[in-house]
Design a protein around this nucleic acid. Sequence first.
DNA 1: TACGATCCGAAGTGTCGACTCCGATTATGC
DNA 2: GCATAATCGGAGTCGACACTTCGGATCGTA
Lengths: 213, 213
Amino acid sequence: MSQTGDGRARRVDARANRRRILDVAEEVFGKGGESASTEEVARLAGVGIATVFRHFPTKAALLQAVLVRRFDRLREQAEALLGTTDPGSAFFEFFRHLVADAATKIAIAEALLDAGGDSDGEATQASNGLRRAVGALLQHAQQAGAVRDDVELPEVYALLVATSRAAAHTNLDDEVKARALAIVFDGLAPHRNARVQAHQQPELSQPHGQPPT
Amino acid sequence: MSQTGDGRARRVDARANRRRILDVAEEVFGKGGESASTEEVARLAGVGIATVFRHFPTKAALLQAVLVRRFDRLREQAEALLGTTDPGSAFFEFFRHLVADAATKIAIAEALLDAGGDSDGEATQASNGLRRAVGALLQHAQQAGAVRDDVELPEVYALLVATSRAAAHTNLDDEVKARALAIVFDGLAPHRNARVQAHQQPELSQPHGQPPT
DNA sequence: TACGATCCGAAGTGTCGACTCCGATTATGC
DNA sequence: GCATAATCGGAGTCGACACTTCGGATCGTA
């Protein structure tokens, strides 16, 4: 990616600009969705429009590049969580993280689902990587007894996407978001009277209780 | 609405056109979201563009009119359900209905949440009416013991919106949608071992069981 | 420092969609 | 039926935005 088509290394200013454009685009598309204009990206990145189009031949390509980077990062985070804490915490932690993250990244949340359509190859591939990582988290959480084992990845992923999308449109209070998420988590948990594990579970018995972070 | 500003009755062709435009707009915006063009609405309604703009001075006004009609209808349905069946069924039934309905009405699902922003007065008002009706359904369901009573309207409504939005973007299998919904319903249900009522509850114990309709 | 390859940005071009104008058409009261 | 006022629709205008062009600045190398 830091090489031009015929194998020559890019100039340093070109690399710096490319990186800055990507960063700004993530911010801009995250806030305004994909309807945000390319001109705004260029302006905030402090470059001309032509520079943006030189690095990314089309607006769709730019958006795709942003998505790929984002998906890859999320996947890495999911994979990292897989080894470090107990499986139950890892799963719910990542779920919560993704929802909170999507709150400032409308475009990501929108794309999570739409990437199912095979129209944009690279982004779809990255999205699938993330999906697989979530699948691994789910499987481990189920084996540990933290998630009921009669649910499967498709519906869990659908819920993940749905809550992320909703969180992205910010009219909601944080408290309400947390409580809605707690309801979903409760639906994912094994029967309550069968729970014995020590790992933290969202607690709804105290009406206004903030779920553990 | 069938009167012009100064109190004169509209001509019959004008009334018919207005109605047709509204119907088509609901269909078009439902399928393509609010980014669908006004020209397409006009074309499918069999009228000129000017006619559309004569009835609705701006595209936003047209969209709002569609939303108001839709929200009002949904509210009526919710209110009707309140008296006819047992409260638990009524609540879950309406939840399921709204989600299924939103599946073909992207714009509605999008607007459900966005209407929280007070930018478009009339649509917001209609949206609030629907929200109140859902609140009544929820309250009755809780009194009947069909829904845990430590949840409140804001988070329930948020879940309703979230699932509707997700369902609107059609990449999902119906079966998966049903199972995701069942997880949410399970999170809303009272503790499973405390359930005694006869009204139907979504059943997840059989992994692939279709929730009751 | 000098020079060529590479990269940059301001000012375009083309398209698309929201919205308007105006002559033609049609409903409605007499 | 006829006058007339309301309504209609096609052919515009206007602005926004994705994308291009080209003269000039900058980097990398000797």
